[in-house]
Design a protein around this nucleic acid. Structure first.
Length: 306
DNA sequence: AAGACGAAAGTGGTTGA
DNA sequence: TCAACAACTTTCGTCTT
């Protein structure tokens, strides 16, 4: 990862910018531009695609669940220990255990190596911060050790782990984006994501619609005022429990749409829908609820006349 | 002609018996 | 395990700008 430290906003040359290390974004307080301060790391693009295509996607070690927990990560002695053992029986046993241990760990190591390369590739494609990447790697490692990968493709577990890591760090990417980056269907990612988080007992806060705003707004080239307006709308919406149960991206999109109307920077429902990865219909439904419950109708009308 | 709106039917996931 | 259910999507016809 190459990180450029920016001193001023390339758009409006304002010095008033602040970096959000966690989210991997730098945001200009004056024009609202989200500056990508991370270059894509192309180093991983030389990954072995051929291997992927040809090798069987079976993963996980050829082993039983029980030997896993005991054996993993522990060294079953080395040959110098061997000479201390007295009976043939013990020697025999020693070798058996050692053989298994090596077999298991190398299988896991091999799997991990390939998986981490894939993880890195996807992560850099999505421009995710290092902290998320590391979290995802940790999750994946745990998943492998628990044998959760069997029956699933390695790639989908990687995607699931990444998605979970994103959520934990509150730098959400949609399932669609994750799907595009990893080449796994979003249904599948969702499934493995739920499965892995359940099995590993990783608790994840329900995602906050406001987390999506900066990214969507910058994709739509909306001003900072519009952005903060939509965040404000979201806060009000949350207070009257309009947000619970609904998909966060739909709400974020609707809030952004309303805010864009109010500030006279109108975007079509289609445009907003596209960047948020929802349909116009969903935006319409949320939008209707918003202006009704928050009595925003007047504000929207007012700015229309201008 | 494009955008906004709304109805109706379909999908995938959750929940509770 | 199955059926009811809520959220969201797809599709399509109509109205508005």
């Amino acid at each position: 990862m190459i990180r450029k430290q920016l001193k001023e906003c390339p758009e409006c040359a304002s010095k008033n910018i602040f970096g959000d290390r966690e989210k991997g974004e730098t945001i200009c307080r004056d024009c609202g531009l989200v500056i990508e301060d991370r270059m894509v790391d192309f180093g991983q693009e030389w990954r072995t695609f051929e291997d992927d295509a040809n090798t069987k996607r079976r993963t996980g070690a050829p082993t039983s669940e029980t030997s896993f927990d005991q054996g993993l990560g522990t060294e079953v002695g080395n040959t110098s220990d061997f000479y201390k053992l007295s009976s043939d029986r013990e020697r025999d046993r020693f070798f058996r255990l050692r053989k298994w241990n090596i077999r298991i760990s190398t299988a896991i190591e091999r799997n991990l190596k390939v998986a981490l390369a894939e993880l890195k590739r996807v992560s850099s494609f999505l421009k995710l911060p290092k902290s998320v990447e590391e979290e995802a790697a940790r999750i994946y490692r745990q998943a492998v050790q628990k044998g959760l990968v069997r029956g699933r493709s390695m790639e989908s577990v990687v995607a699931g782990a990444l998605y979970a890591a994103c959520r934990r760090h509150e730098v959400p990417r949609t399932l669609d984006e994750m799907g595009e980056a990893s080449g796994i269907e979003k249904k599948e990612i969702g499934r493995t994501y739920r499965f892995v988080t359940r099995e590993l007992e990783i608790s994840i806060k329900p995602s906050n619609p406001a987390d999506y705003i900066p990214r969507f707004a910058s994709a739509l080239k909306l001003s900072a005022e519009t952005q903060s307006k939509s965040v404000e709308i979201l806060e009000h919406a949350r207070d009257i429990e309009l947000t619970s149960g609904r998909g966060p991206t739909g709400i974020a999109a609707a809030a952004l749409y309303v805010a864009s109307l109010i500030h006279g920077e109108k975007r079509t429902q289609r445009e907003v829908a596209d960047v948020a990865g929802v349909t116009e219909v969903t935006i319409r439904n949320r939008y209707k609820e918003l202006i009704k419950k928050l009595k925003l109708t007047k504000e929207v009308e007012k700015s229309k006349k201008k």
